[in-house]
Design a protein around this nucleic acid. Structure first.
Lengths: 109, 109
DNA sequence: CGCGGTACTGCGCTTTGCGCAATAGTGTTC
DNA sequence: GAACACTATTGCGCAAAGCGCAGTACCGCG
């Protein structure tokens, strides 16, 4: 079973959701997602997604040196990110419903 | 908004679902999916998926000449396909719930 | 001093959906 | 009857995104 393909296009959404209420750095975002049930998500995927979202102007970023370990690159939401989160969530819900409908009725006949 | 990424790993499931009750040929499967709400799905994606599933041993295939147009390549389910459908559906439901939970609570805090 | 946990970057691979062109048969319209 | 539109399939090459893995680096502990 390849859960990884299901993540495509949805990891963005998950990452944004996890950052909605509180800023977080990569490693922490990874932990939040895993704690939330996404045990299969790879670390590189999360770091990549964060960079992608930042580059797209949806996140802010600032580095904080840590006393107990390497520096941490925090990411936080801005207005564009919040807007995107709402849109993506809507798209997700619509898609979900569409697929569920198809699963329910099988062939339209 | 890029709905296409949401399809990844799920188009298989949709195609199998649509073939569950009745055999169908590519063009028809495409129509069923579009009628079911997947207006954005590309024809090449469906043909590709059918070939992939067939190659994976999940579908049977037979060609039927048509009186009114080109020949049609029908696809039908076999036991492996049916089994896969059930599994994939289960995986989909689980994934759905996981993501919804993350969307609900945001940061685990 | 090496080992394990924390934390990030970069590289290359794979899967998969997509656009587009080509091929081909049929019916319609001007 | 030539052009066009719809049906129906194949193949090619592209792009997006998740992943594994290696490398770097910093810390504390035994």
């Amino acid at each position: 079973m390849d859960t990884s393909q299901l993540l495509k296009g949805v990891l963005d959404l998950a990452v944004l959701a996890v950052l909605r209420d509180e800023d977080g750095y990569g490693y922490d975002v990874l932990r939040r997602l895993r704690a939330g049930g996404m045990g299969e998500v790879g670390d590189a995927s999360v770091y990549g997604t964060l960079r992608r979202l930042y580059k797209a102007g949806l996140l802010t970023s600032y580095v904080v040196p840590s006393d107990e370990g390497p520096h941490r690159k925090y990411y936080g939401m801005n207005d564009a990110g919040r807007e995107r989160l709402v849109e993506s969530e809507k798209a997700w819900r619509a898609f979900q419903e569409t697929l569920d409908a198809i699963l329910r009725k099988g062939a339209v006949a």
